[in-house]
């Protein structure tokens, strides 16, 4: 079962994503800020990271750089309320950019695709 790390500082959103991802058949773990997220990337070796951008402390963009410096093979999905970050080239390093919505279908589809692609690449 693929492990998905959710990094978001909103507890209700973490719960929502966890609920939906589990229902979709993923194993999940959550981090409530970027620093914790970085730590979990190293220690828990997730198969994919869902990363919020606007967070107190270190933001998602910086976290993205640091994650990729440690392990540039892990897929990262930027999940944010702001579509404007799409224009920032620093976000282009992410594998996907999903604007937050109460309809989580797009997020789930994206996660599934990326995980499948990675698994296929490994085999």
């Amino acid at each position: 079962m693929s492990k998905v790390l959710i990094v978001d500082d909103e507890p209700h959103l973490r719960l929502l994503y966890e609920t939906e991802l589990r229902r979709a058949g993923f194993e999940t773990m959550t981090a409530c800020n970027a620093a914790q997220g970085l730590e979990f990337v190293e220690t828990m070796k997730p198969d994919l990271v869902i990363l919020d951008i606007r967070m107190a402390g270190m933001d998602g963009i910086e976290a993205l750089q640091r994650i990729l410096e440690r392990d540039n093979t892990v897929p990262v999905v930027l999940n944010t309320a702001y579509s404007s970050y799409k224009d920032n080239y620093l976000t282009w390093a992410a594998d996907a950019y999903v604007t937050k919505s109460s309809d989580v279908t797009e997020l789930l589809d994206t996660v599934r695709d990326l995980v499948d692609a990675r698994t296929a690449a490994r085999n």
Binding site: L13, A81, Y82, K100, V104
Partner: peptide, 20 residues
């Protein structure tokens, strides 16, 4: 508007979860 997005995601998201 942005600030409203996060709570809306939670409300709407869980409403769907609930519905399912």
């Amino acid at each position: 508007a942005h600030e409203l997005r996060n709570p809306l995601v939670a409300i709407g998201g869980f409403a769907r979860t609930l519905m399912r």
